[in-house]
């Protein structure tokens, strides 16, 4: 029984090397967290997984980039003096596509670990709960940012190519990046929390789409009603009630975007400040709830 089980002579020769212990360096929790971030970020685009896992992320990404490419082509060939869509507006305009991608990427990031009970393997290693949550949240936010900022880069490159004015383009582009970053951080936190509540990926996808769209349309509808009834002030405040309108409000108020709310009245300064506070509070709340959720998901 002590002989090597079922090996051919060739294998047995390899076996004779014996066990080698590891005396090299151990890089600890910080390194493990960074590795988890990179691993999850790659996973969000299906890298390191099967070919089938790459189809949807890259398909959506192609759709995401298409308007930017068309815009650039038009600008270059017809000699427009500005791009048809502002950089910061691009992200808002493409919200449905980004939303679909979030609904795809967030469950991929956390549901699988829950469903296949891989979590205990992570938590029996140097990283702890907060390392895991922060790595996953950072990975999802980064994935969203890569997904939605690359079209902006394409548009910016095209804008420079079409000689639309370096200073104008650069300021608008940087503003667009900041708005996109805010959008990504807020939405990543919300989506990750929703995704972490179910080990079933399908439920996760459906739940995230509902959480992102239902409040958005509800808020927009109520804003339209408020506008009809002439309370234009209330419109701005109602934007607080969904993550999507929240970021749209921030974009309009602080980054010179066009007001897309019903009535197209610029939200008041107080409402603007409230947007920032609400965005920060929502992100923080989701993060705290996420950390708490993993307290029970241990061994």
């Amino acid at each position: 029984m002590s002989t090597t089980p079922s090996t051919t002579p060739a294998d047995a020769r390899i076996h004779d090397i014996g066990y080698r212990s590891y005396e090299g360096e151990r890089l600890g929790a910080m390194y493990a967290r960074r590795s988890l971030l990179v691993h999850s970020l790659r996973g969000a685009f299906g890298l390191g997984r099967s070919a089938r896992a790459k189809v949807l992320p890259f398909g959506l990404f192609a759709i995401m980039c298409m308007p930017a490419v068309v815009m650039v082509a038009v600008a270059v060939t017809t000699g427009l003096d500005e791009l048809p869509i502002e950089y910061s507006g691009y992200t808002m305009f493409m919200q449905p596509i980004i939303g679909l991608y979030i609904a795809l990427a967030a469950p991929q990031m956390v549901s699988l670990d829950l469903r296949f009970k891989t979590i205990p393997l992570y938590f029996s290693r140097p990283i702890d709960r907060s390392d895991y949550v922060s790595a996953k949240a950072a990975a999802l936010a980064s994935a969203l940012f890569v997904f939605s900022a690359i079209p902006l880069v394409i548009a910016y490159a095209g804008g420079l190519l079409a000689e639309l004015g370096f200073t104008d383009q650069t300021t608008a582009f940087l503003r667009g990046l900041v708005v996109t970053a805010i959008f990504c951080v807020v939405h990543a936190a919300v989506a990750l929390l929703v995704a972490s509540l179910t080990p079933r990926r399908g439920f996760g996808v459906a739940a995230i789409i509902s959480v992102l769209t239902i409040p958005y349309f509800a808020a927009t509808a109520i804003m339209a009603v408020a506008d009809e009834q002439g309370s234009t002030d209330a419109v701005g405040w109602l934007a607080l009630f969904s993550p999507g309108t929240l970021v749209e409000g921030i974009e309009a108020r602080f980054f010179g975007g066009e007001v897309e709310f019903p009535g197209e009245v610029m939200p008041s300064a107080a409402a603007g400040a409230a947007y920032l506070v609400a965005a920060a509070a929502l992100t923080a709340l989701c993060y705290v709830l996420l950390t708490r959720r993993y307290r029970k998901a241990g061994l």
Partner: peptide, 12 residues
């Protein structure tokens, strides 16, 4: 992946 989670560098 699990080895890296334990702190081992990539090649190790």
């Amino acid at each position: 992946h699990m080895a890296r989670m334990s702190g081992l560098p990539r090649t190790a």
